[in-house]
């Protein structure tokens, strides 16, 4: 996730900057939380067929592991695409 917000502010003792850094950290936390929540919900709909038993089956467990990896890959690929797009718009 760290790459999302770039290098961040360098060390500084100004209060204003610290507030900004705090806000940034909180926004990053919210972003990671949103990513996690959407991942949970997406992998639920992809991997969990029924809720009649209390335990995850072997197949469901394996599916979840791969689902998390693939979701992460889609997140990274889309982020890359948005980054390139954003840079293109700034050059105009």
């Amino acid at each position: 996730m760290a790459s999302l917000f770039g290098g961040g502010a360098s060390s500084s003792s100004s209060n204003a900057l610290n507030q900004e850094r705090l806000d940034m950290a909180l926004t990053e936390m919210d972003t990671v939380t949103d990513l996690f929540n959407r991942m949970v919900s997406s992998c639920q709909s992809k991997c969990i067929a029924r809720y009649a038993e209390a335990e995850l089956s072997k197949g469901e467990s394996v599916c979840i592991d791969r689902c998390v990896a693939k979701y992460h890959a889609v997140y990274a690929a889309v982020g890359e695409k948005l980054k390139i797009r954003g840079e293109g718009q700034q050059q105009r």
């Binding site: 209390a54 335990e55 995850l56 998390v68």
Partner: peptide
Amino acid sequence: QCVNNCAAKFMAHSERVSARFAEMN
């Protein structure tokens, strides 16, 4: 009974996603 099982499975799912997600990060 269904609600009990569903709640357990829901949490098991969230915890597994959470563990994999943490490893990935």
